[in-house]
């Protein structure tokens, strides 16, 4: 726990000191570490393949679903009312009594409010709707809630981040903190910020969530990945969002 808040405090301090001294923020988005061709695709809404997912998400936003016969728009109004939401998740949900990420919150609305069938994790429909909701926060700074349950989740996530795992016995921090900018085979190791999710990843040829990305890293070190939506993954997300506080939401980003 202590380690978690220490790590968060360290990053906050780093960013604050940098700003106070007029030095550039040392934190880099994965965007800064990728090739100019991919950067150009992310910058151009018409060439970003995630546009297809956004369009599907927009229709889903307006379409009635489930036995309640309600659309997202029936309760929330226009998508502009979702501006800022992705910038503050994971958040503590008083109804559910736990910390949820954005994907979990949307799914909760789907099941409890729309009374619709659950959608499988990473299914196109589920990712498309999250991407559309998160897109509304593009350009906004990440502002994790100052709330004790979210703080506890972030602390647990910080502990997981530094734990060695898998047959290769590596921790997230050994790559993303201690070796960011260096090359793992052909890939530049990014600092591992969650600024762009859901992202279009060329290796996937599709849009996927942050947890799908984290699973890829865990499978890479030959670890048993945490389950989608598990408290461990929500904790890692909460930690990554604190570590990236103040950085800009890029959704839908493009990654290699």
């Amino acid at each position: 726990m202590k380690q978690g808040s220490a790590a968060v405090a360290f990053f906050a301090l780093l960013a604050a000191t940098a700003l106070a001294q007029g030095i550039a923020d040392p934190r880099r988005s994965g965007f800064d570490d990728m090739g100019t061709a991919l950067q150009a695709i992310q910058r151009d809404d018409f060439s970003n393949p995630a546009a297809l997912w956004l369009a599907e998400g927009e229709s889903a936003w307006n379409r009635q679903a489930g036995s309640a016969g309600k659309s997202c728009a029936d309760c929330h109004g226009g998508p502009e009312n979702m501006r800022g939401v992705a910038a503050r998740y994971p958040a503590y949900d008083t109804m559910l009594g736990r910390v949820v990420n954005l994907d979990g919150k949307i799914e909760d609305c789907r099941i409890r409010r729309q009374k619709a069938d659950p959608l499988p994790h990473e299914s196109r429909a589920r990712v498309a709707l999250e991407a559309f909701v998160a897109r509304q926060s593009r350009g906004l700074p990440i502002v994790p809630p100052d709330e004790p349950n979210v703080g506890a989740a972030a602390a647990a996530g910080s502990a997981l981040f530094t734990r060695r795992m898998g047959q290769l016995d590596l921790s997230c921090a050994q790559c993303h903190e201690q070796r960011a900018g260096q090359r793992l085979a052909g890939s530049i190791i990014p600092q591992g910020h969650p600024t762009g999710y859901p992202v279009y990843r060329s290796e996937w040829q599709s849009v996927g969530t942050l947890q799908r990305r984290l699973r890829n890293c865990m499978i890479g070190v030959r670890a048993e990945a945490f389950a989608y939506g598990s408290p461990e993954f929500v904790a890692l997300e909460a930690f990554l969002m604190r570590r990236a506080a103040g950085m800009t939401i890029e959704t839908p980003a493009v990654r290699p």
């Binding site: 734990r163 060695r164 795992m165 898998g166 047959q167 290769l168 016995d169 865990m218 499978i219 030959r222 670890a223 048993e224 990945a225």
Partner: peptide
């Protein structure tokens, strides 16, 4: 190892 994936458990690299 911690949380080693099922296919690798009990085996060296």
């Amino acid at each position: 190892f911690e949380r080693v994936a099922a296919g690798y458990s009990g085996k060296p690299i």
